[in-house]
Each structure stands twice: as structure tokens, then as C-alpha cells.
Design a protein around this nucleic acid. Structure first.
Lengths: 106, 106
DNA sequence: CTTGATTTATTGTGCATTGTGCAATATATA
DNA sequence: TATATATTGCACAATGCACAATAAATCAAG
């Protein structure tokens, strides 16, 4: 198991951080599309969430079904402490690399 | 060929942007170690550079050998316009995802 | 009411792409 | 021939990705 987060893993973790309590497959996908401009399939998203959970960077909790058509129980996902730390460090590494480099406008 | 840059690809491109004229295998490796804290093998670096060049994100030019022991010609590498644009967009996607999220201190 | 259609949600799976390092090779000076 | 710097050639592991299948809910005939 490597120490580093992949690019898509980082995007998914950022989506979780952003979504807080309302993070599950569909909202993660929508957030990625809306903010990152990234149209990912559910397969991509759920596979990644599964791997992140296996690494202990994310945990999940099954919600209650809702009384609407198709209201199957959602699997809510959230960052663990380790997950938040890993994300922070990965983003910090990018920031250190980009710091002071002209033409990148962060 | 995917549209998106991997995590290590982005780090390497950032190293190139930072190094400017003096980017080749060894300096890229040193920059990654010094700024990102990432100790990558030369195999990792050269493979990635090769793939980035195949995608047209990077170009290279063989330098002149130097009159020092082991002064074999270096292969200098630089970002193409497309490479710089791809890097900028990839970093911007992260920035948009991270924008306004507490606990990430960018 | 009960059975199939429809809707939201997640899982299973296989393959493509990226990440990684070891060993080999190339090319210079000593 | 030895030694130092630099690059290449693999082989394999990890991540990225989407299609199809499955699950679990409500709706709507008949």
C-alpha cells in the first residue's frame, strides 16, 4: 500500500471534505462535475471510495431509506482523521512545488 | 489517451515549471525530494517523462557533454504550451474543489 | 393486493493508464 | 580498466475507469 494519493483519490477526498454530512455516491459525482468539471462514472467513484475505505482514509455509514420513489438507503461517506491528514499533506506537497512558479496562478 | 494528469505527472510537470532551463532527470529528482518530500527513483522519473513527451506535454533536447568525469550529455526537458495549459487546468481543478473548504489551509 | 415498471443507489468485474524500482546500458573522464 | 553521471528497458503494482448487474424502494395496472 503506497503512501501517496492518486489524482482522482484527491479529488474524491476534496469532494467529501466539501460535502460534509451529505456525501454519498450521487452527491460526490455531482460535486466533481460542478466544481472540477470532471464527469466520472459511478463505477469510477464507488471503486475509489471502496479503496479509500480499505486504506482507512474514509469511513461509511448506511443511512435510512427515504419514502420517495427509488429511495433506497444511501451509504454516507466521510473522511477519517487519517484521511483528512493525508489529503492536507498531498495538497501541501503540490503547493510547495507550485510556490513561486510564475505562470501557474494559484 | 485520457484527458487528465496523474498525481505524479503533475508533480513532475511542476518540477519542470520550477526548474526552467535546468530541468533534466537528476534536477527533477532533486527538486521532488527537496520541495515535495518525494523520493522517486530515476526509473519512475524517466518513465513519466517519456509518457508526458508521448502525449505532447513535454519536449526534450539533448545538451552538450560536459568536460567532467561522467559528464555524459543531459537530456533537457521543458514544458510545451499544451503541457503548461494542462498543468494549469489540473491545478485549477484542485483549487476549485478546495475553495472554501475549512480544515485544509491552502 | 400483487406483480411488473420505474427510479435511485450500490456492487462486481475487467481492462487501461499511471506509478515504481531494479538492472542494464551509454558515455564521459581518470 | 575503473569510476562517475545519465538514461533506458523492462516487469509488475496501484490507480482510474466504465459497463453491466444487482438491490431496494415506490408507482400503477388489472
Amino acid at each position: 500500500m503506497p503512501d501517496y494519493l492518486g489524482e482522482f483519490e484527491q479529488l474524491v477526498l476534496l469532494a467529501l471534505a466539501r460535502l460534509g454530512d451529505d456525501a454519498y455516491g450521487v452527491t460526490v459525482r455531482d460535486t466533481l462535475a460542478a466544481r472540477a468539471g470532471r464527469r466520472a462514472s459511478f463505477g469510477a467513484i464507488y471503486s475509489t471510495l471502496r479503496r479509500l475505505e480499505a486504506k482507512g482514509l474514509v469511513r461509511s455509514k448506511l443511512g435510512d431509506p427515504e419514502a420517495v420513489r427509488g429511495g433506497r438507503a444511501k451509504k454516507y461517506v466521510m473522511l477519517t482523521t487519517r484521511g483528512r491528514a493525508a489529503l492536507r499533506e498531498a495538497q501541501a506537497a503540490f503547493a510547495r512545488m507550485a510556490e513561486g512558479v510564475p505562470g501557474l496562478l494559484r
